[in-house]
Design a protein around this nucleic acid. Structure first.
Lengths: 133, 133
DNA sequence: TTAAAACTGGACTAATATAGTCGTATTTAA
DNA sequence: TTAAATACGACTATATTAGTCCAGTTTTAA
């Protein structure tokens, strides 16, 4: 119920590795091999991180990835939202789905759940990816 | 990635409802009807809550459920553990699976993830079910 | 100029977890 | 003894997550 997906796990491992390499360019293959992470999956994740401007990439031979900014500027909250898409702790707080909720009007726990959500978000916002290194 | 399951949602709704009814005995059917929650599913959840000593039940005609203790004595953390079983925010923190993790020894993010987990647990421990009423 | 090493991207499949259903038994009050 | 309730296990369906496959494109270096 409160569990990081593999994507987040792999992201953290990759980001840490790339960060430690300083300005060296790192390939998906290298990380995949080092940590036994399925190559295709990791590649996808790194591509996503690039698209989200957390990494920059070079294509072609000798290509690879490096950080676009230091990891203490990226919160866990931001990483999760960018990798998995923003979402609420219950379906109905994921705004799109409001209309689909049978209970909504009579829902008794909406407000406190909302507060809970904010507290969780806060915790994740104050955790920087650099804290995981 | 941080989302309450329907089971937790339904639990909260049911517990709130039962709590508001004071000492009256409440049936699964009543709650199910009121909130459009699938009867069989809700029944299972209430049975589980009973087995975990959060509710007490009477069988037979005029049977139903009531609280075994006030909701400010039950933390969200406890409710989640009892409904879904205890689990870590990543697989490897769910102790049984340690042996299956390919990365484990070389895992760079284990320790900070562990700390993160403790902080999350803490947040959930300090939230009482009564806060959701 | 071409081959190899890398990223890019989409569609697909597999595995797992969550949500929901069904059938049957048991209990109990009226 | 019947109807209304909980109890329980097995099953199915759906959604999410994890992982695979394949066919590109880009770039460097030989």
């Amino acid at each position: 119920m409160v569990r990081f997906s593999k994507k987040i796990e792999y992201s953290l491992i990759a980001l840490r590795y790339i960060s430690n390499a300083k300005d060296e360019i790192i390939t998906a293959k290298e990380i995949s091999g080092k940590y036994n992470i399925p190559y295709e999956l990791l590649a996808k994740i790194l591509q996503k991180l690039k698209k989200e401007n957390i990494l920059v990439s070079n294509q072609g031979v000798n290509g690879g990835y490096k950080l676009s900014k230091p990891l203490n500027e990226i919160s866990l909250s931001e990483l999760i939202d960018k990798i998995e898409g923003k979402s609420g702790i219950v379906e109905c707080l994921h705004t799109d789905n409001l209309t689909e909720c049978f209970i909504y009007d009579s829902c008794s726990i909406k407000d406190p759940i909302n507060k809970m959500q904010l507290e969780l978000e806060n915790l994740l916002k104050n955790k920087m990816v650099s804290d995981f290194i």
